[in-house]
């Protein structure tokens, strides 16, 4: 056995390190450019906002791990509906917080099960099935909430804004939940079943993994996490709104991939989701600090996401080799 420490092999087996490195660079650039605001304020803000990117990303990660083609496009609609349910059930009263939270998560798990049933019974590709279900879920949210904005209970509002030193309590709770989910994914038979399915469904079936049950539970789990995130988001932004989940559709996929997880499934890193979420928030902050127009900001975000994926596509090889090998191969190819 080779026991020598090697940076290359360490990074190769832990591609999520890149997302933290990228986040650190962004933090340095932002602090340098924004001069006035302190680093601690930035830490607090980035942890709060990264929580929402990360939880939606974690939900997406579980579905993506299931294998090629698996994706959940219903996360935004699910967030909108569950948050509306939670706020209405809580009705601004602290005693109902737990019941409201459970109600929202129950709604979420139903949405997830609905997604699975569409995929399995109708044999529709997940991208289309979850798109269709998101239409239905969004309609239910519109009909249910009817445009009213219910204030979150004061206790819950206090919790999502509470801090220990500079660290938001909500972010700590979310990180703890992510750790539990990491144990679930990597150490339990259920979680290993998800990964096995993503690597080779036939082998997983032969290894006696309950394929359909694993799929169903994974879609339900992902939707439940998204619903939980919806409740936090509604509490954080002073009530639920019918569009508040929409910006998390693309970001949930982006943070999974930037975090080093394979989009084709079977190889996932929950820690990377957090690194990528910090990166994404800091990127937005940096572009704001530079005074970029909204258009330029979006454009730069697109370029940087593509660039990160581009760099990640050859993190196992040396960068020089990776850039030139395909070009050489292309030039040698017969015309």
């Amino acid at each position: 056995m080779n026991t020598r420490f090697s940076i290359k092999s360490t990074v190769g087996s832990a591609p999520w390190i890149w997302s933290y490195a990228a986040a650190a660079v962004m933090a340095l650039v932002t602090i340098t450019f924004s001069r006035a605001s302190g680093g601690l304020d930035l830490l607090t803000a980035s942890m709060s906002f990264a929580t929402f990117f990360a939880l939606t990303g974690v939900a997406q990660l579980f579905v993506i791990t299931l294998g090629p083609g698996n994706i959940d496009l219903s996360i935004p609609a699910n967030i909108n509906l569950s948050a509306a349910v939670a706020m209405q059930v809580m009705g601004g009263s602290d005693t109902m917080v737990l019941i409201g939270l459970l109600a929202a998560m129950a709604v979420g798990s139903l949405v997830g099960l609905g997604n699975y049933l569409l995929i399995a019974l109708l044999k529709i590709p997940p991208i289309i099935a979850t798109l269709a279900s998101s239409f239905v879920v969004q309609s239910i949210a519109i009909a249910y909430a009817g445009g009213y904005r219910v204030q979150p209970p004061p206790g819950l509002k206090e919790f999502v804004r509470a801090k220990i030193g500079p660290v938001p309590l909500m972010a700590l709770a979310a990180i703890l939940i992510t750790m539990c989910l990491a144990v679930l994914l990597h150490k339990t038979p259920f979680g290993r079943g998800i990964t096995a399915l993503g690597q080779n469904p036939t082998a997983a079936r032969l290894a006696n993994i309950a394929v359909e049950r694993t799929r169903a539970l994974t879609y339900a789990l992902a939707a439940t996490i998204a619903a939980f995130c919806g409740v936090l988001l509604a509490a954080f932004s002073g009530g639920s709104s019918l569009e508040m989940g929409n910006e998390y559709l693309l970001s949930s996929i982006a943070v999974v991939v930037i975090g080093g997880t394979a989009i084709t499934g079977g190889r996932s890193f929950l820690s990377g989701v957090w690194g990528a979420s910090f990166f994404l928030f800091l990127l937005i902050t940096m572009l704001n600090a530079l005074g970029a127009s909204p258009g330029l900001r979006l454009m730069m975000m697109g370029i940087i996401i593509c660039l990160v994926v581009f760099l990640a596509s050859f993190r196992n090889a040396g960068i020089g080799q990776a850039v030139f090998a395909p070009l050489l191969k292309a030039s040698r190819r017969p015309r």
Partner: peptide
């Protein structure tokens, strides 16, 4: 993966 690259490009074109 085209799904991710075109996702990034959707931000680019939107911008």
């Amino acid at each position: 993966p085209s799904i991710v690259i075109t996702l990034g490009m959707s931000f680019f074109w939107g911008g």
